[in-house]
């Protein structure tokens, strides 16, 4: 099957500025993994759900690090929020992305949602609604690689890789090896965001 079309691999323009390189991303994920374990006091009832597309490989990487520390696997899945978005009617019908709920479901579990960029908070609201139709977790936490601010809803992250103060005209892009052949976080300069709104 062709690559998922939600976000094209960004073609770096002259104005792109890297704010995290591959080692920064790696260190941030390692710290998040430890923070999740510390907060949860171990693996008990832990489930990681990545939000497609880039939240899914991030969730896997965090799970790998947790497995390396604790010596046991943590269930990982993905949760597509497309049909729960509040702007569904504002744009042409969008392709659906995979939802894979791990064996054992999420009822009574501590679900950690994983996404690449936290911006308006609308994606997370949609994810909470989507989860409502799948089961009833004991608690839901949020891990993001980058928090760029400008929230439009009362939502905050529990685990943050990097707080990145931005202006609204800038756009933040996360590149991951799985899609873009590199790990990096980029800020596109002062030009208006060019259709790269998947982070919103």
């Amino acid at each position: 099957m062709p690559a998922q079309s939600a976000a094209e691999p960004g073609t770096p323009t002259g104005s792109d500025r890297a704010v995290m390189d591959d080692r920064d991303v790696s260190r941030a994920l390692t710290r998040i993994a430890h923070e999740i374990l510390e907060r949860n006091k171990g693996l008990r009832d832990l489930v990681l759900l990545g939000i497609p597309t880039r939240g899914v490989p991030l969730a896997r990487r965090i799970a790998d690090r947790i497995a390396a520390v604790e010596g046991a696997e943590v269930p990982v899945g993905s949760l597509d929020v497309t049909m729960y978005r509040d702007d569904l009617r504002l744009r042409p019908a969008r392709p659906l992305l995979p939802t894979e709920i791990p064996h054992g479901g999420i009822d009574g579990k501590v679900v950690v949602l994983v996404d690449d960029v936290l911006f308006s908070g609308r994606t997370i609201r949609a994810a909470l609604d989507a989860m409502n139709d799948v089961g009833r977790p004991e608690a839901v936490r949020l891990a993001v690689l980058v928090d760029r601010g400008h929230r439009e809803l009362p939502i905050r992250a529990d685990f943050v890789g990097k707080n990145l103060p931005t202006s609204l005209v800038e756009s933040v892009r996360v590149h991951l090896d799985e899609f873009d052949d590199e790990d990096a976080v980029l800020i596109a300069g002062t030009s208006a965001p060019t259709g790269e709104e998947q982070t919103r």
């Binding site: 099957m1 995979p98 609604d129 139709d133």
Partner: peptide, 20 residues
Amino acid sequence: LRTAEELRSLADRPIKKLPA
């Protein structure tokens, strides 16, 4: 076909309903 594949998994969920 890809969209149908994602929607097919709905049949295995407790709540077989989407808000689209």
